[in-house]
């Protein structure tokens, strides 16, 4: 069953075509990773789905509803955003709120849950990401990895149909990356549908069940980690994998 279907998504910055009529169907429970060189529209694709960017064309089918990505109706925009949640590279926690309040915020303000229900749910999600002992810490009292785990809890608490993750470990110190990756792996195991942009290739290899290689605004390769890493068919994909040392180049073999 498909969780989300994206149709004909196009986005330009001026004359520069960033996304070129992208079509993508993601099945429920899938963990889909987007890889590719920088500037190929990976982040833009994610941000367009959540309408943080304004695409020129395209629509999304989610929960049996087709919503145009160019919609002017703020009601439709909110509806789409409520189906999807975003985890950002820079965490983007609310600085004036504690970890607990950060997770409760969407539950109370958007989902209109009662304070104590929201609190219970928020604590449950914070415990899942291993932040149950830091409920009353403000973001400034938390390390980058801890902040990102709170941000993941904040997104998962909203029970999204699709979780979007935009380079969630890129802003972290190397030693903090693994705690966040473990959190994402757990979220994946629990059956969340995830669309993830990342440069952590080994993680992608182990956790994702589908990989998209994006170049110049098009999906040029689409397959399982085995197909992508062990048996790449596309020339550009091969080049890319050589560059990031995921594929041995003939130059280095004797």
């Amino acid at each position: 069953m498909s969780a989300i279907e994206i149709r004909g998504l196009s986005k330009k910055y001026g004359e520069n075509i960033v996304l070129d009529k992208v079509n993508l169907t993601i099945n429920k429970g899938d963990v889909v990773a987007i890889i590719g060189p920088s500037g190929t529209g990976k982040s833009t694709l994610l941000r367009s789905i959540n309408l943080l960017e304004k695409p020129e064309e395209g629509s999304v089918i989610i929960n049996n509803r087709e919503i145009s990505l160019t919609t002017k109706s703020s009601k439709e925009k909110l509806e789409l955003r409520r189906y999807t949640e975003m985890v950002f590279q820079q965490f983007n926690l609310f600085k004036n709120r504690t970890a607990l309040e950060n997770v409760m915020e969407g539950l109370v303000v958007v989902k209109n849950l009662k304070k104590n229900e929201a609190r219970e749910l928020a604590i449950k999600h914070l415990q899942k990401v291993g932040m149950g002992d830091r409920l009353f810490h403000y973001p400034r009292h938390l390390s980058g990895g801890q902040q990102q785990r709170v941000a993941i809890a904040r997104a998962l608490a909203m029970d999204p149909r699709l979780l979007l993750m935009d380079e969630p470990t890129s802003a972290l110190d190397p030693e903090l990356v693994s705690e966040v990756l473990t959190t994402i792996r757990n979220a994946a195991k629990e059956g969340n549908t995830i669309l993830l942009v990342t440069h952590e290739m080994n993680f992608v290899k182990n956790v994702a069940n589908r990989i998209l290689f994006l170049e110049n605004g098009r999906i040029v390769a689409d397959g399982t980690p085995k197909e992508i890493f062990d048996n790449p068919k596309n020339e550009r994909l091969k080049e890319f994998l050589v560059k990031i040392h995921m594929l041995e180049s003939p130059d280095f073999t004797i």
């Binding site: 943080l52 909110l78 955003r81 609310f94």
Partner: peptide, 18 residues
């Protein structure tokens, strides 16, 4: 106020007034 926080709030589904 960081733009990122506004994006996070939008992503949660808050409207402009919220």
């Amino acid at each position: 106020v960081e733009k990122g926080q506004v994006e996070a709030a939008k992503s949660l589904g808050m409207n402009g007034f919220q």
